[in-house]
Each structure stands twice: as structure tokens, then as C-alpha cells.
């Protein structure tokens, strides 16, 4: 611990911004043309989550869990080559996948409510951002198409969309357990880590 405390955040940054961007290009390159299937599954997840049957809601939660598990395995598997902390981030994503699977198996699944309250509208905005606008924003910012960040491929849009969907979903309290808060914790934690990474990359 004494060793780690002697470092500043920027000291720990061990790769360049260009190599970080290349990571997204390489993940996309390895997946193509799997993006078509991924888009179909994302649409299926939304349709299932918006339907009225409990089984569909469970399937939607399971698909979201698969997205987290895929990012844990594929993205962080590659990221681990350049960041010694990446295996810990993979554990974080795998943990969220397990919790979403538990939501599918033992909870209400992912059941989207019709937007009525501010929380729902905020969730809708975040879900739209993660699923559609996030990659477009990167393209507008000059990132090449091959290097854009997509839901279920890259961690940031996956986390943003998940937060949005959970804010829109009907997630009842289980006894004293704030289930929604528990499910939001890891996506929020990841986005904090990602923000710090970008801050370090841009200021180092």
C-alpha cells in the first residue's frame, strides 16, 4: 500500500491516448461483422423490456447481463495487455453481469415503465445516449468509425445505457435492500474510473 500511495494518478497511467483509442479499433475489428447480431440483440432487449410478460422481462435482464459479461471478457481481456489494473475492472463487469442474471432469475427482470416521472425521463435520455448517441458523439469528435465505442462492446456506453435502463425500470425494494441502488453502484463506479482515466490521459 505504501508503494501505491507514493504514486500520483498520472504516474500510474502506463499507455498513451493513441494506444487507448487503438484498443477500441481492435475490439471492433475482432468483432466485425458480429456488430449486426449485437444490434439485433440490443433491439430485442429493448422490445422484451418494454413488453408486458414476466418471461420477456427476465430475458431482457439476461441479455443485459450477457452484454456486461461480454465486455468483461472481450474488452478487458485486451485492455489487460496494456493496463495492469484491467483484470480488476473485468471482475467489476463480471460482478454486474452476475447481479443482472440474479435479477433475471430471482427478481422482476428488466421491465421498463412508461416515462412519467423525472427519473424515467432521465433514464430514457441516458439509455438513448448509451445505445445510440455515444458512438455518434465520438465520431463527431473525430474518432474513426472503426474506433467508435458501442453498447455491449465498449464499457462506457454499456454502463451509461444500463444506468438509463435501470432508472426507467420497475425495480421494487426487496425488504430493506435498495435493489436499484445496488444495481447502479458498479456502472457508476466504472464511469468514475473511466472519467479519471480520460482525465489522466488528457492532462499527463
Amino acid at each position: 500500500m505504501e508503494t501505491w500511495l507514493s504514486y500520483r494518478l498520472t504516474d500510474l497511467l502506463m499507455f498513451s491516448p493513441a494506444i487507448y483509442v487503438r484498443l477500441f479499433e481492435r475490439v471492433n475489428d475482432a468483432l466485425w461483422p458480429g456488430h449486426v447480431l449485437l444490434a439485433a440483440l440490443s433491439v430485442a432487449m429493448l422490445v422484451l423490456a418494454g413488453s408486458r410478460t414476466h418471461v420477456a422481462h427476465r430475458l431482457a435482464a439476461a441479455l443485459l447481463a450477457i452484454a456486461w459479461g461480454w465486455v468483461a471478457w472481450r474488452f478487458f481481456g485486451l485492455y489487460a495487455q496494456i493496463n495492469l489494473a484491467a483484470p480488476w475492472f473485468a471482475v467489476l463487469f463480471a460482478g454486474q453481469a452476475v447481479m443482472l442474471l440474479a435479477l433475471a432469475a430471482f427478481g422482476p427482470g428488466l421491465a421498463l415503465a412508461r416515462p412519467q416521472r423525472p427519473r424515467h425521463w432521465l433514464g430514457l435520455g441516458l439509455a438513448l445516449w448509451g445505445l445510440a448517441l455515444h458512438p455518434i458523439a465520438w465520431l463527431a469528435g473525430g474518432r474513426p468509425l472503426a474506433g467508435t465505442e458501442l453498447f455491449a462492446v465498449a464499457p462506457d456506453p454499456t454502463a451509461i445505457a444500463t444506468i438509463g435502463l435501470l432508472l426507467m425500470a420497475r425495480v421494487p425494494r426487496r425488504g430493506c435492500l435498495p435493489l436499484r441502488g445496488i444495481l447502479l453502484a458498479l456502472p457508476v463506479a466504472w464511469l468514475s474510473i473511466s472519467a479519471l482515466t480520460w482525465w489522466a490521459l488528457l492532462t499527463a
Binding site: L13, F15, S16, I19, R22, L23, R26, L78, Q81
Partner: peptide
């Protein structure tokens, strides 16, 4: 080689 050679298995880099 700090940062500059940490490029993983990226063949281009």
C-alpha cells in the same frame, strides 16, 4: 520504454 512501448499485441503499433 515507459508508456511508449506498452502497446500490447497490436501488430501495427
Amino acid at each position: 520504454t515507459w508508456i511508449t512501448f506498452n502497446v500490447g499485441s497490436d501488430p501495427e503499433a
